[in-house]
């Protein structure tokens, strides 16, 4: 079964956030900052590679981003992705509608007849919660989002998502879009032979045209620092009686 995964290059989430001087971007100039993928997308790729290992087939990674996004495709090639498709941008941000439309067009136009598209439920950076759903509508395929458990047999994907203390079960016939959450699996680390093989795998590029965003970023800001300082109520087990007092004060203990 041939699977497409959709991924996005994002800044590594830092311990301390800073913005560019004009307040429109995360400041990535610091040498400490690197680039990575959303955790959900590492899991999406792992899910696709696991299905390839059981059922055969290929995994193709699609991404819309700057030419540097090929670094993220290479990382995924080291863990089993066979081919990349880079929809190249000049770095200007695309909104979710335009992103989904470009991905749908590239997936439809591809020579491979995909059985599934696996991606993250939302991106780590913009967190728009919609590219997968829009992609599914554009392809005319069903979609399950927030997937935390996935298995495929006889052309049917069984998906689980966590609601409260239960797991909801969905079954969809392929082809389908599966939007996963971090935790659906534990992504493997790349091996040295994997990294060597990755260098030789093909990346195709295309240059879709950007349309004006309908959700248009004006500026970014860091939220007011809510953090203060905790009252230290003790060192070690001797603090236990004070904990009981606090539990009574806030009403969780009668």
């Amino acid at each position: 079964m041939d699977i497409a995964v959709c991924i996005k290059r994002v800044p590594l989430s830092p311990g301390r956030w800073t913005l560019t001087a004009d307040g429109t971007e995360i400041d990535t100039s610091s040498s400490a900052m690197g680039w990575t993928l959303s955790p959900h997308e590492e899991c999406a790729t792992e899910a696709a590679v696991q299905l390839k290992e059981t059922d055969g087939g290929t995994v193709t990674a699609f991404t819309l981003g700057t030419p540097e996004s090929s670094e993220q495709i290479r990382e995924l090639m080291a863990v089993g992705v066979d081919r990349g498709v880079l929809l190249e941008t000049d770095g200007a941000e695309w909104d979710a509608q335009a992103t989904a439309a470009a991905l749908a067009e590239a997936i439809r136009a591809d020579e491979t007849d995909f059985s599934a598209v696996i991606l993250g439920t939302e991106s780590a950076d913009v967190s728009g919660y919609q590219v997968g759903v829009r992609l599914a509508h554009a392809l005319g395929w069903p979609i399950v989002t927030n997937v935390k458990g996935l298995s495929v047999s006889n052309g049917v994907a069984r998906c689980e998502r966590v609601v409260g203390s239960e797991r909801e079960v969905y079954e969809v016939s392929l082809p389908a879009v599966i939007a996963v959450k971090d935790g659906v699996n534990i992504p493997r680390y790349p091996s040295v032979p994997g990294r060597i093989k990755a260098r030789k795998k093909p990346i195709d590029t295309a240059n879709p045209t950007r349309s004006d965003p309908r959700v248009e970023k004006v500026s970014l800001a860091l939220p007011p620092q809510e953090a203060g300082t905790a009252e230290i109520i003790g060192n070690g087990p001797d603090a236990a009686p004070r904990v009981v007092e606090i539990l009574k004060e806030i009403g969780v203990l009668a």
Binding site: A227, G234, P237, A239, P241, K248, L253
Partner: peptide, 26 residues
Amino acid sequence: MSYADYAIVGDAGQIMPAIVDAVRAA
């Protein structure tokens, strides 16, 4: 510690059994 209202400094392995005992007694 900068998000918490109250903090206890120490090893959870020692502190937690003491809290459990104190809450059970209360």
